[in-house]
Design a protein around this nucleic acid. Structure first.
Lengths: 220, 220
DNA sequence: GCAAAAGTTGACGGCCCGTCACGAACCTTT
DNA sequence: AAAGGTTCGTGACGGGCCGTCAACTTTTGC
């Protein structure tokens, strides 16, 4: 504890590129990959840290050199996903010069991403064999929500949006995006543009301007 | 399953109102109440079955006479909640003679219920001290979603709604309802009618018809 | 009352948790 | 290149929770 070293230069920043750094990165990746596969197999709830390390050549103790718990692994996986899409969504919104572009750009980008990234999005959302549906928002994802709110504020101050409750509007966009994404993935033909069109029409003009369906109603 | 009646007596239905039935109901309630309180205290994730029975005069083995796991207790609590609001929501929708009534009735009823029922709604939604947000939909809740979809279908066939994708529309309503509910509860002044007005305006006319905010923008 | 049925109890084996002392692998210094 | 220092992987360990079950207690039907 007592750091009473003579300290000639003490802790020089160790940006080594030696073998140590290499295996560290590798081990971390090993654990993440194993976790993804095990989560997909057993579901998040049923998975134990032991299951994850067992799917790895490492020892149990090693796991804890990299993550504190399975929650943290989960977060790392999800945050990774969030980190990849956030810039794209943000770019889409910054570029927008109308409400319509803002809304449709956001939805198109999001649904397309979800469809491409089903592995990370879908598998994790099953708690176990329970019929219960689960959605977990990691800090990085929540930060993405906040970013959306800020972009809405900016859009309002630029006169793009009317001065509405940006918190509720953000919540509405998020809610529609996630909930429709789930239905979209449950379908035989996954059609991100169709999902985006639906959501965009809802936000642009309400229920009455929603696209009409092609299939005749009443069909089971 | 085999309903072979004839049976002179055999397993006569035991609708006793004896002491046995009474303590059975009581024990179940004891466990449910304890679970609610413990979930609220520790968060769902961190709670163990032992924590629940410890908050009870019962022995550990008894727990398993009533529930298979903490998941099942959780479901029982949530389903209880869902069972209370579903009829109200349904009544509201059946009574509706216009899109506007259908939508606004649904949201008003839902947000009012959430505000009244914070105990069951709020406490459970914290996973633990983690920053992660969690939402879990039990079978009863999911059945409520399906009921909404059916009511939308009925409304379409009655000409109340245009022939839209009822699945996506249901998803949108659900997403907006849950997500706004969460923001609403996070605020100092919980105002269900305001939340309902916002959501209704969104579905009736889109972003451009959303209520304008009173507080001047730009304030931190 | 009494015997069978129903329900409760808590101890038990099995598993998972997170830690930690140890030793091996690596890196630095001379 | 050898020694010394540091970092990190390893697996065994105590503690706790899980779900079960044989023994016991209470209620019920007669």
């Amino acid at each position: 504890m007592t750091t009473e070293l003579t300290r000639p230069l003490a802790s020089a920043p160790p940006p080594r590129s030696g073998k140590r750094e290499k295996t560290k990165i590798q081990n971390r990746q090993l654990i993440l990959e194993a976790a993804k596969s095990v989560f997909a197999e057993l579901g998040y709830g049923a998975t134990t840290v032991r299951d994850i390390i067992r799917a790895t050549p490492l020892a149990s103790g090693t796991f804890y050199n990299y993550f504190k718990s399975k929650e943290e692994v989960f977060q790392a996986i999800q945050d990774d996903s969030a980190l990849r899409i956030r810039p794209r969504l943000r770019a889409e919104r910054v570029r927008a010069s109308s409400i319509e572009e803002f809304i449709s750009g956001t939805f198109r980008t999001f649904f397309q991403y979800v469809a491409d990234d089903q592995g990370n999005f879908r598998a994790i959302r099953r708690n176990r064999s329970d019929a219960m549906r689960v959605r977990m928002d990691t800090p990085e994802i929540i930060a993405g929500f906040e970013e959306l709110r800020e972009d809405i504020e900016t859009a309002i101050s630029k006169g793009l949006f009317p001065p509405v409750d940006s918190d509720f509007l953000m919540a509405s966009i998020v809610g529609v995006a996630f909930e429709i994404a789930e239905r979209m993935l449950a379908r035989e033909d996954i059609d991100p543009p169709a999902a985006a069109d639906f959501a965009t029409a809802l936000f642009m003009g309400g229920v009455r301007t929603l696209p009409h369906r092609k299939t005749s109603p009443g069909a089971a």
